[in-house]
């Protein structure tokens, strides 16, 4: 009965071979250093924008301040994840983990919102404790 076992092993090796090829292929693609330098520069510019926006709008218009700073933070996170974390290359391979997270993370806030935020905002000052 040793031959069938051997056959199964060779089948397994064959399947690993598929992985091996994928793994090699993974290293074929790369992002050039010049791109990393540009991304680093963009991240610095974005940090300066959020700092400056806070100096200008924090007192005058907090909503505009929040929108600018929130947008800039999302852009910065995108740049780091897309280029530095290689999602530009690996997105097709790891999106199965990231898509559920993109749904679940906002859900954490959404499910707490009615009790923790809306309940207070809707309560009139007379009914407040």
């Amino acid at each position: 009965m040793s031959e069938p076992t051997h056959a199964a092993e060779s089948a397994h090796e064959q399947s690993l071979g598929v992985h091996g090829q994928a793994h090699d292929h993974e290293h074929e693609q790369h992002i050039p250093d010049s791109t990393f330098i540009k991304v680093f520069g963009a991240l610095l510019v974005f940090t300066a924008i959020s700092f400056a926006a806070n100096q200008i709008f924090a007192a005058k218009n907090p909503v505009v301040n929040f929108l600018i700073i929130g947008f800039v933070a999302c852009c910065k996170a995108f740049l780091v994840m897309y280029f530095f974390m290689h999602l530009k290359i690996d997105w097709r391979k790891v999106f199965v983990f990231l898509i559920p997270i993109c749904i679940l993370a906002p859900m954490v806030i959404v499910v707490l919102w009615p009790d923790m935020v809306l309940a207070w905002r809707l309560a009139s000052p007379d009914t407040a404790p």
Binding site: Q14, S15, H19, E26, K93, V94
Partner: peptide, 13 residues
Amino acid sequence: VDEAKYTQRGIPV
């Protein structure tokens, strides 16, 4: 081999 193709093939990383 046939089975391995579908059951053992994971995410290509």
